[in-house]
Write a protein that binds this DNA or RNA. Structure first.
Length: 431
RNA sequence: UCCGGAAUAGCUCAGCGGUAGAGCGGGUGGCUGUUAACCACUAGGCCGGGGGUUCGAAUCCCUCUUCCGGAGCCA
């Protein structure tokens, strides 16, 4: 018999259907058996009554264990006790495989145990919900960009050079060519793409060998880099705001059940779909100092500063116009102040921290060259990048969105490690 | 890398110098509406490794290992 998906159950009320999935929980009370079945699209309670199945089949069904796989045939009907929900009156149960004693129980577990069992942990309902939100966020980003004429332009993962500094690169041997590195960002390559395609983006894993050990860091994470020709600093932030607000609306529309399951404050998300704040770096420092922070002018924000900055703001905040010393070489100098660059960071509300870094890029050959010389960069390795400023250079801007940071915020979960199927962290690479 | 904390049953933990414990999970039985079901019985331990102190160490001390939390760096 054809499989019905649990998510489609409402369309099959009163019909005999076949569900295929796994046992989430099983309880029995005399001649009644309750199996909560999950199939990837959702969960539903299946109720088996001994006289309906026969004694032998009922006894077989009672031996199903947590996470056993099975095929259930029965009638879909409204839940007898919970309005708005469905259940299935079971006619027959066919075990596919009886699971061994499942290591992940119904009670709480520690993070080490769960991460070591990540291959099983992903079946848990909260992990299921987060991974579905990740999927929604991923496609929302792509949809927004596609609708706005950005062309997907995949940048290489194996690269001969560093995008930003060489201290945090994963290094490997590349045949007779010497060292190669895992990409930290496809941005420099994207800048080549806009000269052909106008607006481009890439979306894939990037790698940072930072010895960071916080709830906001992974060594392998997914980043979407976008780059657009003839877009300047202010418009760059406008595109970012539209993108993020598009993602918020998509998540609220398509992931209501997932957000409920995660106990996410939906009102907080809804409130973030409003015009974002823009503050200069200088004003941000002044504001933070007025709130008691020890931060000094010319320095980057710490984690506590990000929380302090956004705790009273329902919307994300752009911090723009940074001191050039603490930002990357490729950012365009502010025409009104040579000590500043036209870069912006977008800080999510509720203390979720930085989710986007972006800037207008330096399009003048001589200015870019002088910045690269000042940072002692190997000019030969970057000749192709400098070439872009010689053959039809144009003002252009771009930004990078950290997918997992954005999913962490949307889901309202505590730690970024739960937003990617298999997190890679400084002390963990299994499974 | 730095600063804290932890390691005891499959899991989550209690025990903090004197016989190794609970809940969940597993097994067996009971129950016709359960929702982390309930009730009864039951199996399950190198108390992270190594060294000390002590009549006696899961417990105190040293050391190693592993993990967790935080900081810095960043998305």
């Amino acid at each position: 018999m054809q499989q019905t998906l649990i998510i489609d159950l409402a369309q099959h009320l009163g019909e005999e259907i076949t569900l295929k999935g796994w046992v989430r929980t099983i309880r029995h009370s005399g001649k009644l058996l309750f199996i909560v079945l999950r199939d990837g699209t959702g969960e539903v309670q299946c109720v088996a009554f001994q006289p309906d199945l026969g004694e032998a089949a009922f006894d077989t069904a009672k031996r199903l264990t947590m996470e056993s796989s099975l095929i259930v045939t029965g009638t879909a009907k409204p839940h007898q006790k919970q309005t708005g929900q469905f259940e299935v009156a079971v006619k027959s149960i066919q075990p596919v495989q009886i699971a061994e004693e499942y290591p992940i129980g119904k009670k709480e577990h520690g993070p080490d145990f769960l991460l070591s069992n990540r291959h099983l942990w992903i079946r848990s309902s909260k992990q299921w919900a987060v991974l579905r939100i990740r999927h929604a966020v991923y496609y929302a980003i792509c949809d927004y960009l596609n609708q706005n004429h950005f062309i997907r332009f995949d940048s290489p993962i194996l690269t001969p050079n560093a995008c930003e500094g060489t201290t945090t690169l994963f290094e490997l041997d590349y045949f007779d060519e010497g060292k190669a590195y895992l990409s930290q960002s496809g941005q420099l390559y994207l800048e080549t793409g806009i000269m052909s395609l106008g607006r481009v983006y890439d979306f894939g894993p990037v790698f940072r060998a930072e010895r960071s050990k916080t709830r906001k860091h992974l060594t392998e994470f997914w980043m979407m880099d976008a780059e657009a020709a003839f877009v300047e600093h202010a418009q760059n932030m406008q595109i970012q705001e539209e993108l993020i607000r598009f993602v918020i609306r998509r998540v609220l529309e398509t992931c209501d059940a997932e957000l409920t399951l995660l106990e996410r404050d939906k009102e907080a998300l809804r409130a973030a779909d409003a015009p974002f704040k823009i503050m200069t770096h200088r004003d941000t420092i002044d504001y933070l100092r007025s709130k008691g922070s020890e931060i000094t002018h010319g320095s980057d924000l710490g984690a506590a500063d990000e929380v302090l900055l956004t705790q009273d703001s329902p919307v994300p905040i752009f911090i723009e116009k940074w001191p050039k010393e603490i930002k990357a070489f490729y950012m365009k100098r502010d025409p009104n102040d040579p000590d500043l660059v036209l870069g912006s960071d977008l800080i999510a509300p509720e203390g979720f921290g930085e989710i986007i870094g972006g800037s207008q890029r330096e399009d003048d050959y001589e200015l870019l060259l002088s910045r690269m010389k000042a940072e002692n960069m190997p000019l030969d390795d970057y000749q192709w990048f400098l070439d872009l400023r010689k053959y039809g250079s144009v003002p252009h801007s771009g930004f990078g969105v950290g997918l997992e940071r954005l999913v962490t915020w949307m889901s309202g979960i505590h730690h970024i490690r739960e937003t990617i199927p298999f997190p890679r962290m400084i002390y963990r690479i299994y499974p």
